Simulated assay, not measured.
Amino acid sequence: MALYEAAAEADVPEGGRVIVTLEGRSIGVYRIDGEYYAIHNYCPHEGAELCKGHIHGTTLPSNVAEFEYGREGQIVRCPWHGWEFDIKSGRSLFSDKVRTRSYKVEVLGGMVYVAIGKD
């Protein structure tokens, strides 16, 4: 697996993202609570640029007629049809079978690197 320079740490705002192209792949690099995550900028539903979607939280398990909101800044919503994905894992919120690719991230010397290739 090769590491590719994606961005300087300072270029990825806390709670935000940058979208980069590495090895012909569009990838969103996110910063959540000081940690970095990377997912494929492609919604598996219809191919929208997923990482251009709104970053937000979601409702958590709760009692009937109660709504508990949480995971703020950890969910991205596809800008076309609203499909939601966990930024940390790439998993969809609605099905265990649907996901977008997630990439390992390393920070070295103030730069954020994304690992691409076989493990």
Rank of each mutant, 00 (worst) to 15 (best):
D33L: 08
D33K: 11
G34T: 03
G34V: 06
G34W: 08
E35S: 13
E35K: 14
E35M: 02
Y36H: 14
Y37V: 04
Y37R: 10
A38R: 12
A38W: 11
A38I: 08
I39A: 09
I39Y: 10
I39H: 04
I39T: 10
I39M: 12
I39N: 09
H40C: 07
H40S: 12
H40M: 11
H40A: 12
N41Q: 06
Y42G: 05
Y42P: 05
Y42I: 04
Y42M: 05
Y42L: 11
Y42Q: 09
C43P: 02
C43L: 05
C43V: 02
C43Y: 04
P44S: 05
P44Y: 09
P44F: 06
P44N: 04
P44E: 09
H45M: 08
H45W: 13
H45F: 12
E46T: 00
G47D: 04
G47T: 05
A48N: 05
A48I: 01
A48W: 00
A48C: 07
A48R: 00
E49N: 10
E49C: 03
E49R: 06
E49H: 08
L50W: 05
L50Y: 03
L50N: 00
L50V: 09
C51P: 01
C51V: 03
C51K: 06
C51A: 00
C51D: 01
C51Q: 03
K52Q: 01
K52T: 00
G53I: 00
G53P: 03
G53A: 06
G53L: 03
H54R: 05
I55L: 11
I55H: 05
I55M: 02
H56N: 04
H56Y: 09
G57R: 08
G57F: 01
G57M: 07
G57H: 10
G57V: 09
G57K: 09
T58D: 11
T58G: 02
T59G: 12
T59D: 07
T59H: 10
T59I: 12
T59V: 10
L60A: 07
L60E: 12
L60D: 03
L60M: 15
P61C: 08
P61S: 05
P61A: 10
S62P: 05
S62L: 08
S62A: 15
S62Q: 11
N63V: 13
N63S: 14
N63M: 14
N63E: 14
V64K: 15
V64N: 09
V64A: 15
A65I: 06
A65W: 11
E66G: 10
E66C: 14
E66A: 15
E66H: 15
E66I: 13
F67S: 14
F67T: 15
E68H: 08
Y69C: 09
Y69S: 06
Y69E: 14
G70K: 01
G70P: 09
G70S: 10
G70I: 03
R71N: 11
R71G: 01
R71V: 07
E72Q: 13
E72T: 13
E72D: 14
E72S: 13
Q74L: 02
Q74I: 00
Q74W: 00
I75C: 14
I75K: 10
V76K: 11
V76T: 06
V76R: 05
V76P: 06
V76E: 01
R77A: 13
C78L: 03
C78D: 00
C78N: 01
